[in-house]
């Protein structure tokens, strides 16, 4: 009985996760500039993959510990890689979407490139 309850909770969690993976990809596809895409991509896919992993851990007996470790690893590394991509592409000269206002980061990047 308890297996059945846990299993179906897991199925629902995997559904939520798969749906958010889809939303993340849709955001990356639709949004107008790189930084907005990065936002949608990071947040939605992080929740998606974490929820999928925990759901799978609940469905299959004995997988929960490893899947929790995988979920924690993904939670810690995903924001770091998106942060690195955002910073690198701003410095590589990617212009933000024209409605971006204010742009306080531009001053800092300009100051640093003047110093070089």
């Amino acid at each position: 009985m308890i297996d059945l309850i846990l299993g179906w909770t897991g199925v629902v969690l995997v559904f939520i996760g798969v749906f958010f993976l889809f939303l993340g990809a849709l955001g990356v596809f639709r949004l107008p500039d790189l930084f907005n895409r990065l936002q949608a991509g990071t947040k939605a896919t992080t929740l998606g993959v974490v929820s999928t992993t925990i759901g799978v851990g609940l469905i299959a007996k004995g997988w929960l510990i490893f899947s929790l470790a995988l979920a924690i690893f993904l939670l810690m590394t995903n924001p770091i890689s998106s942060h690195a991509l955002g910073r690198a592409s701003y410095r590589a000269g990617v212009k933000p979407y024209k409605g971006t206002n204010p742009d306080l980061y531009a001053e800092k990047v300009k100051k640093e490139s003047d110093q070089k």
Partner: peptide
């Protein structure tokens, strides 16, 4: 740009 491709790749690997 190449940065956009990198963002696509990042999302792709997570999925």
């Amino acid at each position: 740009t190449n940065s956009d491709r990198a963002v696509g790749l990042d999302t792709w690997t997570t999925i």
